[in-house]
Simulated assay, not measured.
Amino acid sequence: MLPTLDGFTLDLVPHCSSVPREGWTGAHRVRPLSEGGHAQARALVAAFGTDVDGVYSSPAVRCRQTVSPLAGAVGLAVTELPELDEAAGFGEPGEWTEGVYAPMGAAIGAAWAAGRVTRALAVMAREHPGGRVVACSHGDVIPVFLTLLSGMYDRPLPEVVGRGGWYRLRFATGTVTMAGHPGAGDLQQR
C-alpha cells in the first residue's frame, strides 16, 4: 500500500489556535482560527519557505486556514484529504468499539485513525515522490500517527509541539527521522 518513501519529507502541522469550542454555536467543522491562530498561520509561511511541492489539509475550516497562507505564498492549491480529518473521539468503526470490544475501544479507534492518516501519507508520497509536503491535521490524529511511525521504525517520538508548531518527518531507506519544531508557539493554545 505504501509507495517508496525514500527522500520524502512531510511537515505535519496541528491546526493553529482556533476559536474556543466553548461558546462556539456553529458546526464544529466550520469553527475558524482565532486572531492568534491567523498570526501563527502567517508565521508558518516564513518558517517553511518556498521549497514546498504540495499543501494538504483536513476538510475542517481551521485546518484549511492554517495552510492557506502558505499555499498562496508558494502558488499551490490546498488539497483536502478526508483522511486528515478528526477521528471523532476514536469511535470508528462502531461495531469494533462497542460491546465486548468496549474496553479496547479507544485503542481500536486510535489504530483506525492511524490507518487513515497512513493512507493520507501514501496519497501524498505517490503524488510527490521524493518531495516535500506540508499537511495540516488535528490534535487527536497526529499523536497516534507519530506513535505508529515510532513503533514501525523503532524511532523515538519527537518533542510535543504546541499550536503554531509542526513535526518534520524525513523518510530514508528503512527509517524516518521525526523532529518537533515549536514555530510561532502557543499564542493562544486551543
Rank of each mutant, 00 (worst) to 15 (best):
F48H: 07
E95Y: 11
A43H: 08
V61E: 13
L121C: 07
I108C: 01
A47D: 08
P103Y: 13
W96P: 04
E35D: 13
A60C: 10
E83R: 02
G89K: 04
G75E: 04
P103S: 12
A122P: 13
A87I: 06
V30K: 12
A43Q: 09
G72T: 04
R31I: 04
P32R: 01
V123Y: 11
L76K: 03
G37D: 00
R29T: 13
D53T: 09
A120W: 07
E80P: 01
G89I: 00
F48C: 02
G36R: 10
G109I: 04
Q65S: 10
V117D: 02
F90T: 00
Y56C: 08
P103F: 14
V78R: 15
A114W: 04
R62Q: 06
L33K: 08
G36H: 08
D51E: 15
F48R: 01
L81M: 05
V74I: 02
Q65T: 03
A87M: 12
C63M: 13
A47E: 04
A125W: 05
R29E: 14
W112D: 11
G115M: 09
A71Q: 12
A114M: 04
G75N: 10
A41V: 02
P82W: 05
V45C: 03
H28W: 12
E80D: 08
S68F: 03
R29W: 10
E92W: 03
Q65C: 10
V78A: 11
T79H: 12
V30M: 11
A77N: 13
S58N: 13
A43W: 12
A87N: 15
R116F: 07
G89V: 03
A110L: 10
L44Q: 07
W96N: 00
V117E: 05
V55F: 00
E35W: 13
R31N: 04
R64E: 09
M104L: 15
A111W: 10
Y56G: 08
R116G: 00
A46T: 06
Q40G: 06
A113G: 09
M124H: 13
M104D: 12
T118Q: 15
G105W: 05
T118E: 14
S68A: 15
L84C: 05
A114C: 10
C63V: 11
Q40W: 08
L70E: 00
R31D: 01
S34E: 01
V100Q: 14
I108N: 01
Y101G: 04
V61F: 11
P103G: 11
E35C: 08
T97S: 07
T79I: 01
E95A: 09
P93E: 14
A41H: 02
